[in-house]
Design a protein around this nucleic acid. Sequence first.
RNA 1: GGGGGUGUCGCAUAGUGGCUAUUGCAGCAGACUGUAAAUCUGUCACCGGAAGGUAUCGUUGGUUCGAGUCCAUCCACCCCCA
Length: 393
Amino acid sequence: MLIEIHVSLPCLFFNKIMHFNLIQTDPNSKARAGELHTDHGVIQTPIFMPVGTVGSVKGVHQHELKEEIKAQIILGNTYHLFLRPGLEVLEGAGGLHKFINWDRPMLTDSGGYQVYSLSGTRKIQEEGVRFQSHLDGSYHFFTPERAIDIQRTIGADIIMAFDECTPYPCDYNYAKRSMHMTHRWLKRCMDQMNNTEPKYGYQQALFPIVQGSVYKDLRVESAETIASHDAIGNAIGGLSVGEPDEELYSMTDLVCSVLPKEKPRYLMGVGTPVNILECIAMGVDMFDCVMPSRNARHGMLFTSEGIINIKNEKWAKDFSPLDPNGTADVDKLYSKAYLRHLIKAKENLGIQIATIHNLAFYLELVRQAREQIMQGTFRSWKDQMIPKLQNRL
RNA sequence: GGGGGUGUCGCAUAGUGGCUAUUGCAGCAGACUGUAAAUCUGUCACCGGAAGGUAUCGUUGGUUCGAGUCCAUCCACCCCCA
């Protein structure tokens, strides 16, 4: 008993409250470098967060995430983890960190994205959303309060408000009604946070989410509402759902101009390497996206030389390294021809190598972006990087 | 030598008289943005960018309004008996 109290004390009483330090701002853009302090360590921003929906970044284990990819924070998903393995297992393990053996920061999405992506098997009401499990067809009702409770049990450092991610296109009236409901849900999430305690002795911060589809007045209203809650960090949702890049950029730029400068801004679900650099230039600090991991499994690699589809016949006899300028071991250890062979042969090793490569590439890209911001040279660096990143080999 | 069986677009298959010959794999290409995704889509005889055109079910004949399908012939392969 004594030992348990002793162990939990440092977390609760000696750590400072989770906070963000803005360290440097780029003189020629709105890009920023910062540090987000959590009880599981400091996240250096801008940052890309690999997605590990069900407690696993598909294809790579935690050692590689740390040592090769150099991930500082990873994601989990409330909906998926709730369905499987379920709350009893997660609580029994002492939270997701311990369950998967990850001692760095984690973030969980609330299930709001599943309101969008599982639109065929869910029903939205003011009270919450009824989902039909994609695993066994069982019905589950998520409310803002329940999303918080579940995220308390999962135990990520950063947890997300329960929202509706609207589709694209989305008519104005629907977007407006949905946004207002998301705002009401946010209030309920905040109240539930205030009425509950973390379960595992470290802090959890709730990030609210801006919605409003692609309508400027709605986005401004939403960003102002979200900002008024004075959360530790703020998120921008409802983008990267099929809209053209111009809309992604104009909405992101607009929302960033309203959200407080001194708080981290998390652009959910974005994106391509180019999207990320452009949005860093607008003042976004945090990103997540399935693209590097999913596309790796499908044979698409983002490299310093450009984008390659490793399944294409033209790589069959290309024995050059995967990425001569890459920072991961796999980049120099293995050739394009070998990875093509592994992916074509559906070998698990191919997926592992490709995923490690892509995620390491994303993490190196944001690390370089941060370095350029610190040196005040981000804008020109970004402009000369973009054509390279778009190049298809 | 005798008897039986099988030949369908790379491979494997469906098709026993009716109009564009089925499906899977392999191949070639494309998509993928808070993961219902190691998935999905297209293509996959030949010419053409496409519209479209020309072929084709081992071979050659035949029956029939019409043949992958029925008959005969030859060829190849497989099985059994000598």
